[in-house]
């Protein structure tokens, strides 16, 4: 604590790498005790439950079935009104949760898998293979993703959700890869990795059991970020008509709302609820990432004592 007086916070949060193993991992526990992350996790859990129990919650099995008159305002019978085609918006919203979350999480996971493989390989092997992988990463990072995705989807012509997953994943891994690469570089030079190498552990064991466990919070936050990106991009693609409009997702509900001039006809119930759902899921993911940030860098936290002190000091 020698320079503790002026920078006591830095003393406690110096980014050292205590050796972590899978067994002693407490990220999940730490996350749930962080207020922001807990709220975020709560919202996500709610939507996951809705997705799982969609058949129980939704009034009808087929979200595309016409059940009422066009553009009916919310009523007891149709709590969120009907679409221009007379479909029940609530039913669509519940069923849409499934596809939206599925595409989001699957894409996020594929993205992070690619990012982990490329990032760690690039950081662990040095020399020209690293040069090439970093160059590739940086190039993919700098080419604007959405226009490229739009052009590819345009050529594919009405891609289904799985195609969207593939296209998104193949273009969106670069950010995660770059972050993970630099972290790998740092960890690679730590004592415990050196020790493992001296004792002759095979590379895959070092990567899997020495390096990866020490990047959990980083991988987790990159994953959350990728899911958020996937949810938003999927919705965007569908909104501009590049998805399959017959598969009900939050994005396609908005596509139909826009196409049926919902704004002009004041049919707010067709475009407010799906947007709110997307925003809620997005905000929940952002909250979880705030939490992860605060856990891995305690300096970012604003605890109550500090608030009080600061308020007193800052006159």
């Amino acid at each position: 604590m020698d320079n503790a007086a002026t920078s006591s916070a830095s003393a406690s949060s110096t980014r050292r790498f205590p050796r972590l193993s899978w067994g002693r991992l407490g990220l999940l526990g730490a996350l749930l005790s962080n207020r922001k992350a807990a709220i975020g996790a709560g919202i996500i859990t709610f939507f996951v439950l809705v997705a799982i129990f969609a058949p129980v919650i939704a009034p009808t099995k087929d979200p595309n079935r016409m059940v009422g008159r066009p553009h009916e305002a919310p009523s007891l019978e149709h709590p969120l009104g009907t679409t221009r085609q007379g479909q029940d918006v609530f039913t669509q919203l519940v069923w849409g949760t499934r596809v939206t979350l599925l595409v989001g999480f699957v894409t996020g996971s594929v993205v992070i898998l690619i990012a982990v493989i490329i990032g760690i390989t690039s950081g662990y092997v040095s020399g020209w293979s690293d040069e090439i992988l970093s160059l590739l990463t940086n190039v993919v990072l700098v080419i604007p993703a959405l226009p490229l995705i739009i052009v590819i989807s345009g050529f594919i012509d009405r891609p289904g959700p799985m195609t969207i997953v593939l296209v998104l994943a193949s273009i969106s891994w670069a950010y995660g890869a770059r972050v993970l690469r630099s972290q790998t570089l740092t960890i690679r030079h730590s004592d415990f990795v050196a020790a493992a190498r001296v004792t002759g552990e095979p590379t895959w064991r070092i990567v899997l059991f020495e390096i990866l466990p020490n990047m959990t919070s980083l991988v987790a936050s990159a994953w959350i970020g990728a899911v958020l990106y996937a949810v938003l991009t999927e919705a965007t693609l569908e909104f501009i008509g590049l998805g399959n409009p017959n598969i009900v997702t939050w994005g396609t509900i908005l596509y139909w709302a826009q196409n049926n001039a919902a704004l002009m006809t004041n049919a707010w119930w067709t475009f407010i609820p799906p947007g709110v759902c997307i925003a809620l899921v997005g905000f929940a993911l952002v909250l979880i990432n705030y939490g992860i940030d605060e856990i891995s860098n305690p300096r970012l936290r604003t605890d109550r004592v500090q608030k009080k002190k600061k308020a007193k000091a800052a006159v």
């Binding site: 958020l228 938003l232 919705a235 965007t236 909104f239 501009i240 908005l254 826009q258 704004l263 002009m264 707010w268 475009f271 407010i272 947007g275 997307i278 925003a279 899921v281 997005g282 905000f283 993911l285 952002v286 909250l287 705030y290």
Partner: peptide, 21 residues
């Protein structure tokens, strides 16, 4: 942070709906 989680196009729709329409 909340606004950052909004899909751009949706916020655009809301802005259009509220402030223009």
């Amino acid at each position: 942070g909340l606004f950052g989680a909004f899909p751009y196009f949706w916020l655009a729709m809301i802005m259009l709906y509220v402030f223009a329409l």
